[in-house]
Write a protein that binds this DNA or RNA. Structure first.
Lengths: 121, 121
DNA sequence: TTTTTTCATATCGAAAACCGTAAACGATAG
DNA sequence: CTATCGTTTACGGTTTTCGATATGAAAAAA
């Protein structure tokens, strides 16, 4: 018995691998960028990423957020009511800006190397 | 005894964290890109990345290369003479092109979202 | 020749990150 | 009270990262 597949298993596996190997780093920049523009909430970010077609699991995202706070890239405020699992809003710190700056520089360099390279060499 | 430091320890730790969290994915794209232009050799890539200011250890790079080959993103030819540790040249496969395509699309999107274009203003 | 250096890849073990699933918790609705 | 929703946290197994070290052949030095 066969199933009709929109996407082959191969493609699905490919996507998962690309996510882990490459795109996860992009999402982290995404997170910082959003945090720079306004408070970011974990669960919202989860959906935002899904809207962009990336299926990130909570078990990946929340540790990332926590780590970013530990590293001092973000800081958070937790809603006063709601107990220990209350919603947390994350904001970018100066160190986080520094990270974005470094990442942005590299991103730019890679972008030019891949695409434009005008006046090559 | 004190040393003059160009970079503080904090910055060094910061850089290491950024490398691992974010930039490693960039290098992988870098690798694929180089493989698209001509054969890539591990040790050469190691130095190439160092020239760009990134200190990647062999214990990170070689497994990446092997994994990319396992995943069918690259294929390799090993020098006939030189035994089991002979130099390996890596080339991009069609699947690798597909990966670059996906990664490139995301890169472009992020680039524009961050509004990194220089010379604007 | 024998020894040492150089080039290049592979491997090891511990620490960290990833990821799906499940649990926890307060608020709100029925 | 019970069910459900929004949200974060915790749990475990697997995979990745990383520095250090081992391996192996060729080139240089002695």
């Amino acid at each position: 018995m066969k199933k009709i597949k929109i996407q082959s298993n191969d493609d699905s596996a490919l996507n998962k691998t690309i996510n882990r190997e490459i795109l996860l780093g992009f999402w982290k920049i995404h997170i910082l960028h959003h945090a720079a523009q306004g408070p970011v909430v974990g669960n919202w970010m989860l959906q935002e990423l899904r809207n962009h077609g990336y299926d990130v699991s909570p078990g990946t995202l929340y540790p990332i957020l926590n780590r970013m706070e530990e590293n001092g890239w973000l800081y958070s405020k937790q809603d006063k009511s709601g107990g220990p699992k209350a919603r947390k809003s994350y904001f970018l710190t100066p160190k986080g800006e520094q990270v974005m700056d470094i990442a942005g520089t590299q991103l730019k360099e890679l972008y030019h190397e891949l695409d434009l390279r005008d006046g090559d060499g």
